[in-house]
Amino acid sequence: GSLMYASIFGNVSAIIQRLYSGTARYHTQMLRVREFIRFHQIPNPLRQRLEEYFQHAWSYTNGIDMNAVLKGFPECLQADICLHLNRSLLQHCKPFRGATKGCLRALAMKFKTTHAPPGDTLVHAGDLLTALYFISRGSIEILRGDVVVAILGKNDIFGEPLNLYARPGKSNGDVRALTYCDLHKIHRDDLLEVLDMYPEFSDHFWSSLEITFNLRDTNMIPGSPGSTELEGGFSRQRKRKLSFRRRTDKDTEQPGEVSALGPGRAGAGPSSRGRPGGPWGESPSSGPSSPESSEDEGPGRSSSPLRLVPFSSPRPPGEPPGGEPLMEDCEKSSDTCNPLSGAFSGVSNIFSFWGDSRGRQYQELPRCPAPTPSLLNIPLSSPGRRPRGDVESRLDALQRQLNRLETRLSADMATVLQLLQRQMTLVPPAYSAVTTPGPGPTSTSPLLPVSPLPTLTLDSLSQVSQFMACEELPPGAPELPQEGPTRRLSLPGQLGALTSQPLHRHGSDPGS
């Protein structure tokens, strides 16, 4: 009898404990919600809404976190579960008819179910419309201010047509639940991603989709105040780019002037030289400038040598048109050559190039014969006009050509200096018209024969001689050997007369 009593008592207590286990969990969670309300000092109306929603959600799901349970299964099984949970929507909604099984599984994985109690606001006026909503159960109302403009029910759709707008718009009203509602919502990016994977279904979906109420604000059109608020930074940046392009296009129409201050000032006329910023005076940081632009901040801005204009002085008759350009485009679109090309026009420029290279940067340069637009006047290309890779490749080509020119210049200078040193070592320090008596009659020769300089066969020296023939050397430049009979510069000019005159010897006659 005691054994029977113990078994009955144990079973009854276990049954009672299981009955009250759900209630215990409910009270535990309710205590957490109330502690949250007390800690954050939530006001009474919002506090009442929180408690009511918790009670309804507990009775609806029995305190089970559906998302946590669903995430515990593998992905393939999750797709089947989501397809079952959203079967009513996918079967009865017209846009989803005719979709393949794979497309429906992908869509079912992207849908999220939302449960809303009465009085809950789903979308506020001015919120971004980031999702498309399908009503599965219940009814909602749409308000503009305090005026109800629409009441939607089961199988209705609200949001915005995503295929017509590249960016999400703003809501033009509040969406509030009238009863307990079940909503299926899919985010904008998720829907577009699935439709991109199934393009054959995309056309059918957009053609058959009928949005019951379009929440997009109709005033959000390009150029409206609301649109400016939504895309303020983007609009200002776009206007700045367009104004920069218009100014650079105007600059290219004036090829007669070359400016070292950047493309923003290349198009300024002579009357605007004294102004601080020219056409860019209202925004000094709008356009890029070269490193020399920092010198323009000092006094005497109108007389600054940074602004270059072609000189009108005539060229000498024998002067060549100019050196070879550094870039391939210089032959086609440049009416002034790079300062480095002028360094190779003569030997005198070679000796004085490194010492006063900055001073020569603004000297007169030889002109190319074609009066085409200036290379320095070409505006900086924006990322939309020329690819970045093209600019980098041009810079690399320019750097390689500069290296080759520097190597060639160093070799030419070394060769010229070597020839000058050899000339100085071969010439005796001094010569006299009267020579010392020699031991015999073989001493009648006034000077030792001097062998002429070897013929220069280097390509670089031939180019130097060509430049010497075309360029007029300055007075202080050293002379180079030329073709024809060679003669030492330090010898007297009348050596031929010395050989014809008898030598005057000093000596005593033994017979006297």
Rank of each mutant, 00 (worst) to 15 (best):
L129A: 03
L129P: 01
T130R: 06
I135Y: 01
G138T: 03
S139T: 10
E141A: 10
L143H: 08
G145S: 13
G145A: 10
V148I: 12
A150Y: 01
A150M: 04
D156N: 04
G159S: 02
E160H: 03
L164V: 06
Y165K: 13
R167E: 10
P168D: 01
G169E: 01
N172C: 12
L178V: 10
L178A: 11
Y180K: 03
C181D: 01
L183E: 02
K185W: 14
I186R: 02
E193D: 06
E210M: 05
I211H: 01
T212D: 05
M220D: 10
S224N: 12
E229A: 11
L230R: 11
G232M: 09
F234Q: 11
K239D: 14
R240S: 10
L242K: 06
L242A: 11
R245G: 12
D249I: 15
T252L: 10
E253F: 10
E257S: 11
S259G: 11
G262D: 13
G262N: 09
P263V: 11
G267Q: 13
G267L: 10
A268P: 09
A268W: 08
P279M: 07
S286A: 06
P291M: 03
G298M: 13
P299D: 08
S302G: 07
P310Q: 09
F311G: 07
P316C: 04
G322K: 11
M327G: 09
D329G: 12
E331G: 09
K332S: 10
S333W: 05
S334C: 12
T336P: 12
C337E: 15
P339Y: 06
L340P: 10
L340N: 07
A343D: 07
F344I: 11
S345H: 08
G346R: 11
N349A: 08
F353G: 10
S357T: 11
E364H: 04
L365E: 09
C368I: 09
A370P: 07
T372Y: 08
S374G: 11
S374F: 07
S374R: 09
S381G: 10
S382K: 05
R385M: 15
P387H: 15
P387C: 06
E392M: 01
S393M: 12
R394V: 11
R400E: 05
Q401T: 05
N403M: 12
L405F: 05
T407Y: 06
R408K: 06
D412R: 09
M413Q: 05
M413W: 05
V416L: 09
L417P: 04
L417Y: 03
L420C: 07
Q421I: 03
Q421V: 06
M424T: 13
V427Q: 14
A430R: 09
V434A: 12
P437W: 11
G438N: 15
G438A: 11
T442N: 13
T444K: 14
T444I: 13
P446F: 08
L448Q: 11
S451V: 09
S462P: 08
S465N: 12
Q466I: 03
C470Y: 14
C470S: 10
L473G: 08
P474S: 12
P481R: 08
Q482I: 13
P492H: 06
G496K: 13
L498A: 11
S500E: 07
H504P: 09
S508M: 09
P510W: 15
P510K: 09
